[in-house]
Design a protein around this nucleic acid. Sequence first.
DNA 1: GTCTATAACCGGATAGAC
DNA 2: GTCTATCCGGTTATAGAC
Lengths: 230, 230
Amino acid sequence: MSLTGLEPAKTSKGEQTRAVILETALELFRERGYEETTMRAIAERAEVSLGNAYYYFKSKEHLIQAFYSRLQDAHHAASVGILESERDLKPRLLGVMRAMIVTTEPYHRFAGVLFRTAADPESPLNPFSPESEPARRQSIELFTRVVEGSKARVPSDLKQELPYLLWLYHMGVTLFWIHDSSPGTRRTYRLIDRTVDIVVKLISLASNPLMRPLRKAALALVVELRESDS
Amino acid sequence: MSLTGLEPAKTSKGEQTRAVILETALELFRERGYEETTMRAIAERAEVSLGNAYYYFKSKEHLIQAFYSRLQDAHHAASVGILESERDLKPRLLGVMRAMIVTTEPYHRFAGVLFRTAADPESPLNPFSPESEPARRQSIELFTRVVEGSKARVPSDLKQELPYLLWLYHMGVTLFWIHDSSPGTRRTYRLIDRTVDIVVKLISLASNPLMRPLRKAALALVVELRESDS
DNA sequence: GTCTATAACCGGATAGAC
DNA sequence: GTCTATCCGGTTATAGAC
């Protein structure tokens, strides 16, 4: 519960007020962007006092957190279709990556802020922070399904770390997308098409017995990196 | 000029005031961290008025920018030793990477903010932004020297992009370092030791004629990515 | 044109009454 | 749970001295 930033809202009254504030905030973020939206403006349009808005969301950043967890659910929902109908690794990955862009598209403009706060090691929004562990786990879990549900044959040591590696890959694509100002973020779609192809080729290359030593070295490293998150 | 954030300060008097403000700011940042240091506190200790501080630095962020460009010079200076004495690619890269951590160490605490602002697509500090093109070029240039000065044999298509790729690699290491709270950032040093090894192995793997198609595909992609920065 | 200072504005955040 | 009043700090406007 506390994990999704949905702390209060015990009574239905509170739940409702909380929802109104969040909805209004997202609306304003979409309209004018994050920096340009003041807490006062949110409170005003939501018809609550400023103090009340802060009662439900400890800070402006906490509104982002709530938004982020919602986004993730949407991405999940948008991905199930392909995951249920497709067995090949490549189209599975492709589908999930495209679904991500499609669901986040309306918020492209204010995604920059999301990423900025996420990059702060101190921020609870940081994808490597303990606070966001559940969100991270959920996201990685999606990539576990991408791999597990496919008929691709992958050595077990790699298979174990692959979801995490794909999650990292998806973070990189997200970073690119945030900076992508091409119409309809075409460039991001092209990036996905190209990189998914390369990723799949790399997986099959890494699965080659000749690659075993290098693969082992690289995977040992990945495992060690992962220790830092928890 | 405007690029390093060193705009005003034509006269020696102004230059001096400017330097005092920057020095004081960095001192306070080290003492209490970034958020906890107010512009008013900086102005007070530097014995100038608040308005005056803003005359020299358009915003608090611009202080970071000045700091960043200074860091980069220090890294450069700390790297020349190895680059002049060593011909093997691996120790060259290792030396440059270690030099980076050594020079930035004293600012580890407030590096998080640096990175946070750098992650904002709108920020001039963003390493992919046009404003930081000179800084980026300078940094990539360092890796060009790492490659060019070595006796490693690398196919020319890869050799061309390698400095950029190594620069990306160094950004990744930096990201890790920022989150590294182990004593003396030991984990980062270990990461460097391990990844440099892997990177060098990957370069030699990618240089294999059998890898040509995959290498070509990957490099074409890298080139395309680079178009977005300028 | 270079520099310095004072006063105010604006918005995120908090305290405390109801 | 909700409000009003207030604080605090980044930033700006402005006026004037050298």
